[in-house]
Amino acid sequence: MSRLFTGHATHCWQFAPNLPEARGHYAFILPEEDQHPALIDALCRHYANLWRAPLALLEARPVFVSNLRVWENIILPTWYHAGAPLGELDGRMQAMLAGLQYDEAALQRALAQLPAQLDTPHRRLAALLRALLQHPQAILLDEAWLAWLAQSRARGSLLSQLYDRYTALEYVFVLCNHEAPEGYTPISCRWVSEESA
């Protein structure tokens, strides 16, 4: 059993059997859905400190900075941390999309819009592009993403093409309410007082 301290005075996160230490696919199981954001915060901080690299996030409702264009949102974390020139980041994204089957004009239109103008499929796609552009060591998915990926694979859309091509990651974490999906090692999470831990 391992614990994760978040700076809270009396409580910490407890993981059973342990926080992942080896490469693989893991499912964090936390029945209280209202605690998911706090767990995501704690995991992001923990892995950022541990690996000195961000944990890429794919949430059910992806959040973007509303006063930046979609393209600026996609490159923001990489631009901030790596400091690469904008042209190079654009080239990286084009290289990532090269050879995939998709409507290029529709994607270009979506990239030039503000996040509030995006439809749901493009919102998910932008979240995935933002995550992949960071070349993450690990990715944390919401459970809903597994269902969307399955639907996307059935349709052959860009979302699943991108995910399947680029997410051969060392660590894949899924955040679930109850049961771990097939192929994922379950890790139960609890927000406990330090005394009971």
Partner: peptide, 25 residues
């Protein structure tokens, strides 16, 4: 208004998760 909206809509939290410091950015 801009910063309050960003906080209410979870954008500030998202930036922190991406490792972008709020005071700096």
């Amino acid at each position: 208004i801009e910063l309050a909206s960003m906080r209410v809509n979870g954008e500030v939290r998202e930036l922190e998760r991406m490792g972008i410091p709020i005071h700096g950015y």
